[in-house]
Simulated scan of single mutants.
Amino acid sequence: MALAAVGGINDGEVEKEDFLAAYGTFELDPSSQAFTTKTPMWFASMTKFVTSVAVLQCIDRGLFGLESSDDVDRLLPEWSQPQILAGFEDGQPELQNAKEKITAGRLISHTSGLAYDFHPGLLLKWRQSRGEGPRAMRGTIPDVFTTPLLFEPGTGWDYGPGHDVAGLMVARANNCTLEEYMRENIFDVLGMDDTTFEPRAHHDVAARLPPMVGRPLPDEPLSDEIASLNSTRNLMLDHKDQYGSGGLFSTAEDYLKLLKSILRNDGQILKPETVDTLFVSTMSPSSDAALNITLANPAMAAAMIPGEPIVGSPGAGEWTHGLLGLIGLISKEGGLQAGWTQWGGAPNLKWWIDRKGNSCGIFATQLSPPGEKRHQPMTHLFQQEMAKRYRRP
């Protein structure tokens, strides 16, 4: 695993030194090469944060609007007339024309109505009614994600491919690939040289990747767990499109550079006034309610808020969602301060930015299964130590 964190700086203050640490080896064999903070990894859903930043840059530059459905009609015509999957009648899907519209803001806050088709539920049943299996990440973005919505845009919350569609919006608005856009406007600006959607072509990243490792779940072979996550990683290595929800490969040191730029509001990536909007909720009351139902599900909570009590249980936190990720609404004693934002990735990675507490950081592994519990206390110990180390006097 690799850990990286840093604090903000006040006017006239000497820049604080980054905290960088890594533990373990590539394989269970202790004689294999050591993990470092420069070790490339598949960052999975940690990609969403970077895609959200790219979307907000385009909004800063006037290329499209955060809440403009007209811009979605112009740049994403495949999603301009969405339908809602209301249920099934005699095994056939019932589709209704949506009354609300998809917007860039709804795409990056998981309130568009789009969902992944590999989760059990209505969308998987819709695929099966067409004689199909899950197709997410197995084709181009328009090919695999022009699916029915699960709710009226803006009225619910469901973890889904909104960032894939939003990344396509960025690419089309700039007449380039998402990789080309991010390299020019984010990666090269901050010196994120080992971050890419193209690990086989860029800096030999693919050849430097560690294998996935894992701890077994009860009654499930360890090899099956690792194979499942590896198969998804392989889809990203040999991708059909540049998926803004999960396609990036990066390092702890690279990723920290972007977190740090947002924490310090240094103007390199986003306008200062835009950064101020990243730590406030974008949710309607009904979307917040749907999010909290999700976080009350033990399986979903284990992956989305690892190590935290599920919503509705004793000691549980309170959560909402913003333009970058989840927002914690209750301060942790000796830890992160209310208003911090965070997200994670399937191989047990996690980032946070805590502006009030003056820290940001990343905890990165290539560990299976998602939400693996035995390591989770380490993420909280790391956050507590960094909150203490970088707290302003």
Rank of each mutant, 00 (worst) to 15 (best):
P370N: 09
A346M: 11
G322Y: 00
D219G: 07
L256E: 13
A136E: 15
A346C: 09
I262G: 08
E198H: 08
W79I: 02
G8I: 08
M41H: 11
L209Y: 04
N358C: 05
T103Q: 06
A34H: 05
I226W: 04
P377V: 00
A299C: 02
P272E: 10
R374V: 06
G62I: 06
Q83G: 07
D11L: 12
P161H: 03
R127W: 06
D11Y: 09
L278A: 07
G361K: 05
G267H: 04
R61V: 01
K125Y: 01
G267V: 12
A115I: 14
G133H: 08
G247D: 11
G8V: 11
D276S: 03
R61G: 03
T277P: 07
H119E: 03
D188T: 14
A22G: 08
T47N: 02
D70Q: 15
P393Q: 13
T341N: 04
K350H: 10
K48I: 13
E273S: 09
A364L: 13
I327S: 11
Q384M: 15
H380G: 07
D219N: 15
S331Y: 05
R138A: 14
I327D: 03
A98L: 01
T294Q: 01
G312S: 08
W79H: 12
T251L: 08
R172A: 07
I293C: 04
T37M: 13
M300Y: 15
K16R: 15
R391K: 15
I353L: 13
K271A: 11
S313Q: 14
I108H: 10
V189W: 05
L258G: 07
H239G: 05
E13K: 03
S313K: 05
G191L: 15
P153Y: 03
E132H: 14
F19N: 03
L295C: 10
P40I: 08
K271Y: 02
G361D: 06
P77E: 14
H163D: 07
Q92A: 14
P120D: 13
V72H: 01
K240V: 05
R74F: 12
S245Q: 09
D204K: 06
